[in-house]
Write a protein that binds this DNA or RNA. Structure first.
Length: 344
DNA sequence: TAGACGTGGTC
DNA sequence: TGACCAAGTCT
């Protein structure tokens, strides 16, 4: 084993044996394999999502759908509703598609290449599942690993272009023995020690090998390109009520909040759209105030229009207002619904 | 390659 | 308060 590799993997894995987090989808350190269903489900949920947000969702999914076969048999609407609040809803659509592919095939693919072909499984997730569930020496690079590696080797190329150099060095230091523990150790280290703002270098098992630490300014790595400003958009939410129920619709299957239940809404545009695309002719009353919600790529300010239906239209589902929590609304609509219920 | 795609927590 | 950030993927 090359000295460079040993000087990193040995202290890292020793640190992991002592300081690893215990998480519901994890096997203890030293286990060469783990349950692929749990590993896959957790990795999908963890994409761009914090451990704290994932833990209760993971437990709920595992209790309700204890195997990939059970998940494959779920109703789409039930799964989408169960995912509500986690965000990035394409993950939920791909999750059920993936479960059905795996169930039809009889088992998860056991190689990085095979996993990569599954819906919703990209370069990171394929490598993570291959390493953690199947013990493959795959190169696992998420935001934590990228940050640790960029500091360890003082990689100057800004992200995302710098990812190529990062992948190279991570491939060099990934051991054949315990590749899954190595990946999770890098992630735990990035989460607890090699943090974005104020890394705890004095507590780091890799500080002796770290070029970024030696430079005196490890927190400057990885460098990143400036982001574009978020545009402002405006919309109107329609709260149409009849005999204790409110009208909900299903969003189109793709795009923003695709496939999710929602309150009716007009366009989300650069100017307030007023009552455009109101669900039916009704006496709309505008509530005071607005609901603000910030998405990844724009900021949205919603006006709230409330009306009473003359008759039940069949343009959507009439949902009992007292039971709205079980509708599985994305957070932006849950916020708007709460504001309407308070103020109407 | 760059933009679409959610949400909640932190400082 | 707002900008940054999180176990990314798809097109």
């Amino acid at each position: 084993m090359p000295a460079k590799l040993r000087s990193i993997t040995e202290p890292l894995l020793k640190w992991y044996d002592r300081h690893h987090r215990t998480l519901p989808w994890r096997s203890p350190p030293g286990e060469p394999r783990a349950d692929p269903y749990r590993v896959w489900l957790s990795e999908i949920m963890l994409q761009q999502t914090t451990v704290a947000a994932v833990k209760p969702k993971f437990e709920a999914f595992l209790a309700r759908w204890p195997s990939v076969e059970a998940l494959a048999a779920a109703q789409d609407a039930d799964l989408m509703a169960a995912w509500a609040g986690l965000g990035y809803y394409a993950r939920a659509r791909n999750l059920i598609a993936c479960a059905r592919v795996v169930t039809a095939a009889g088992a998860f693919p056991e190689t990085e290449e095979g996993l990569r072909a599954l819906p919703g499984v990209g370069a990171y997730t394929a490598a993570a599942v291959a390493a953690i569930a199947f013990g493959e020496q795959a190169t696992v690079v998420d935001a934590n690993v990228a940050r640790v590696a960029a500091r360890l080797f003082a990689i100057e190329t800004p992200l995302p272009a710098g990812m190529a150099a990062i992948r190279e060095v991570v491939a060099e230091i990934t051991p054949a023995d315990r590749p899954g523990d190595f990946a999770q150790a890098m992630m735990d280290l990035g989460s607890a020690v090699c943090t974005p703002r104020a890394p705890a270098c004095l507590a780091c098992p890799l500080s002796a090998a770290c070029v970024g630490y030696a430079s005196g300014a490890p927190e400057t790595y990885p460098t990143k390109l400036a982001k574009a400003a978020k545009p402002q958009r405006y919309g109107t939410i329609f709260w149409l009520e009849d005999r204790g129920a409110v009208l909900l619709v299903r969003r189109p299957p793709k795009g923003l909040l695709g496939g999710m239940r929602a309150l009716p809404t007009g366009p989300w545009a650069a100017e307030p759209p007023g009552l455009a695309n109101a669900p039916e002719a009704a006496e709309w009353r505008m509530l005071d105030g607005t609901v603000v919600h910030v998405f990844t790529h724009f900021r949205l300010e919603l006006a709230l229009a409330v009306g009473t239906a003359q008759r039940h239209s069949n343009a959507g589902e009439w949902w009992p207002i007292a039971d709205l929590d079980s509708a599985g609304l994305p957070t932006v609509f849950a916020k708007a619904a709460a504001a309407c219920r308070r103020a109407r």
